[in-house]
């Protein structure tokens, strides 16, 4: 699906079935991680050719969720929902959810989607990743 540019193209990409991919990596030792990095493997210390990109399907289950009522940072208005998602491909990610004030409960299946949000420039629209409850 075409649309505005991605806010963080290094971290995710549009999938061809409506579910976004996350740009992760894998080490020769078998450890799968997100985001992709070339600093070194947190599990075994492998680096260089040991680390290869691996697309992670944006499917998983909620580990924990919360509605943020008061946010300490700038540039993000509360309330909004956040979650910890255990991806089916292994890594655990912290992410924004599409819900507001109705965060899915632990154990619920979720999927990654790209939604339009305001960009940094006035009037700019970009696409950013969120997780939503699987239908």
């Amino acid at each position: 699906m075409d649309g505005p540019q991605l806010l963080k193209p290094a971290l995710y990409a549009q999938g061809d079935d409506g579910v976004a991919w996350l740009n992760g990596g894998a080490c020769a030792c078998g450890h799968v991680f997100f985001p992709l990095q070339d600093f070194g493997c947190e599990m075994c210390g492998g680096f260089g050719v040991d680390l290869t990109p691996q697309r992670l399907k944006g499917l998983g289950r909620i580990v924990a969720s919360a509605t943020v009522h008061l946010h300490a940072g700038k540039g993000r208005e509360a309330p909004f929902d956040v979650g910890v998602v255990k991806l089916d491909d292994g890594p655990v990610v912290r992410t924004l959810l599409t819900s507001v004030g109705d965060a899915p409960a632990p154990g619920q299946a979720v999927r990654a989607v790209l939604v339009e949000v305001d960009g940094k420039e006035p009037g700019q629209r970009v696409r950013d990743l969120r997780f939503e409850v699987q239908a």
Binding site: A64, G73, P106
Partner: peptide, 27 residues
């Protein structure tokens, strides 16, 4: 560190622990 997250700015300390509260309560 040079590594970004999906929305790290949204996860200040009290939200991290709100998530742990939710996880513990459910478990």
């Amino acid at each position: 560190s040079g590594l970004g997250g999906l929305a790290e700015d949204a996860f200040v300390a009290f939200t991290h622990f709100a998530l742990l509260t939710n996880e513990y309560a459910a478990r």
